[in-house]
């Protein structure tokens, strides 16, 4: 199966089941560099599973996923981990910041995992924190900042390696609408400035409105949505 021309990340006929529960049942997906694609659908529809499969976190039972022309299934765990470290970025619903590290250490963590020195990693991290307007929180720990601030720190962490693809799983799910809007604005601006593709999993239309294209997942199947302009 060949991926759509020009796509950075593409998936075809993905199937994944957890025991008797079918999460994905022939889902397809593609995204181009710099594109923001929202994956929508009700709870339990398979959105997060699709994201996990696309990011190489969970292997699908069948189907193909290609990233920059490379089939993910042919990579071993170490190669997929390396891909996630260097090419992908992640934002989760609750930030998932390491509570014992300061905010700047959290943001610098992916760079440090890639072997960058601490000083250099924290310098770059501070630059991203500044862009996301949380540089004043650098020395604070996650427990000492608000939910919105924490999520912005998480976005900075996801972008610090200048990833080619940013995976955001309900990034505003735990935030109020005002904070959610601000986080989405900063996230999409920052992603566009680096030409990063964004896979945005959400069930909120308000959040999906920040995307260029929407895909709906229902009962494990996906379909493109036409957007009324």
């Amino acid at each position: 199966m060949t991926p759509p021309p020009g796509s950075l990340l593409a998936a075809e006929d993905l199937r994944k089941a957890y025991g008797p529960t079918v999460a994905l049942d022939g889902a397809a997906f593609s995204i181009h560099p710099g594109e923001v694609v929202a994956v929508m659908g009700p709870s339990g529809s398979g959105k997060s599973t699709l994201l996990h499969c696309l990011a190489g976190i969970v292997p699908p039972d069948s189907g193909s996923i290609t990233y920059a022309g490379r089939e993910l299934a042919t990579m071993n765990d170490a190669q997929r981990s390396a891909l996630r470290r260097s090419e992908f970025g992640f934002v989760f619903q609750f930030g998932q910041l390491v509570p014992e590290l300061t905010c700047v250490e959290n943001v610098a963590l992916p760079l440090r995992l890639n072997g960058t020195s601490r000083r250099e990693a924290e310098r770059t991290a501070l630059g991203w924190m500044e862009r996301l307007e949380v540089d004043d929180l650098a020395k604070k720990r996650p427990g000492e900042v608000s939910g919105g601030q924490g999520q912005r720190v998480a976005v900075a962490r996801a972008l610090v390696t200048t990833p080619k693809v940013l995976f955001a799983d309900e990034p505003t799910g735990a935030l109020d609408s005002l904070n959610g809007e601000r986080v989405m604005e900063l996230l999409t601006d920052a992603a566009r400035s680096t030409s990063a593709a964004v896979v945005l999993v959400t069930h909120e239309a308000r959040v999906a409105a920040w995307s260029d294209r929407e895909i709906v997942v229902r009962d494990g199947k996906s379909r493109d949505m036409e957007r009324a302009v």
Binding site: S81, G89, Q96
Partner: peptide, 16 residues
């Protein structure tokens, strides 16, 4: 658990 999974998601090695 969740944090560990998140750390793995962005490529943290098991050894680390």
């Amino acid at each position: 658990r969740k944090l560990l999974s998140a750390l793995v998601a962005f490529g943290t090695r098991r050894r680390t």
